[in-house]
């Protein structure tokens, strides 16, 4: 079993108006095999948490820690984190013109595993994973995310999740922009990855819809840069009914 542990994390960014603190003391422990859902209002800092775990240079950790099985994640570069087993499915996947999906997937897989995958197996794995996620095989020859629709980008994030087999996946609103069928297909992909690799999942979402397919063990309410409340799956239903008013009032 592996553990991703976030302790009293404070994160700020540089803006034109000066330094702005966005995360104000986040603590969260995820073990492999567990699914944690994070819900919270727009702008509360969910994506900031996800990007900070992945190591985006825009975010500065001012105090607190992130460790993976005791190893200091904050000391690692972005690529080292990925190779250590962290995966971020981004809210807004980036287009990389001129780099084909095939080339990208193979290059990333080779980097993560430390050796090139056997060509025969790899080609088959990619084909199967694409078919499972109902991604048109023609996408293999397209440039990374270039011109993909919102939903297609999200599927391709999950394709990578399945192929790269991380220990921990952070899914930042992977469900937004997906139609009903795609939501199901993508959720199944996440569940497959979880079963096969006993992956730990941090699922950021605004909707309980996806939680019908991906069952969370824990639900955390994220408000103003902190976790305001934690509970089981029932908390999600309550949030859907009541919204975030009671948290925001406390805050005001």
């Amino acid at each position: 079993m592996s553990t991703l542990e976030i302790k009293d994390l404070h994160v700020s960014i540089e803006t034109e108006q000066g330094t702005k603190e966005i995360l104000k003391g986040v603590s969260l422990t995820i073990n492999t095999g567990e699914t944690h859902a994070i819900m919270g209002p727009n702008g509360s800092g969910k994506s900031t948490l996800a990007s900070t775990i992945a190591g985006h240079p825009r975010y500065t950790v001012t105090s607190g820690s992130i460790t993976l099985d005791g190893e200091d994640v904050l000391e690692m570069s972005v690529d080292e984190r990925a190779r250590a087993g962290l995966f971020l499915a981004m809210q807004y996947p980036v287009e990389v013109p001129g780099v084909t999906m095939t080339n990208f997937l193979r290059t990333a897989k080779t980097a993560i595993d430390g050796e090139a995958p056997s060509l025969r197996h790899w080609t088959k794995d990619v084909k199967t994973a694409m078919a499972d996620l109902k991604i048109d095989p023609a996408f293999a020859n397209r440039n990374v995310n270039e011109g993909f629709s919102g939903g297609e980008k999200k599927r391709v994030e999950i394709l990578q999740l399945e192929l790269f087999k991380p220990k921990f996946a952070i899914l930042d609103e992977t469900d937004s922009g997906l139609d009903v069928d795609a939501l199901k297909v993508v959720s199944e992909g996440v569940n497959r990855a979880q079963e096969k690799n006993s992956m730990g999942t941090l699922l950021i979402t605004h909707y309980t819809r996806i939680l019908r397919y991906i069952k969370p063990d824990f639900v955390h309410v994220f408000v103003d840069g902190k976790i305001a409340e934690q509970g089981g799956p029932e908390l999600a239903d309550r949030l859907e009914e009541e919204g975030y008013d009671r948290f925001l009032k406390v805050q005001a």
Binding site: D79, R81, A108
Partner: peptide, 10 residues
């Protein structure tokens, strides 16, 4: 960032 977040060195 996107490429590095997939394990590819800088």
């Amino acid at each position: 960032f996107y490429l590095m977040a997939r394990g590819i060195p800088e």
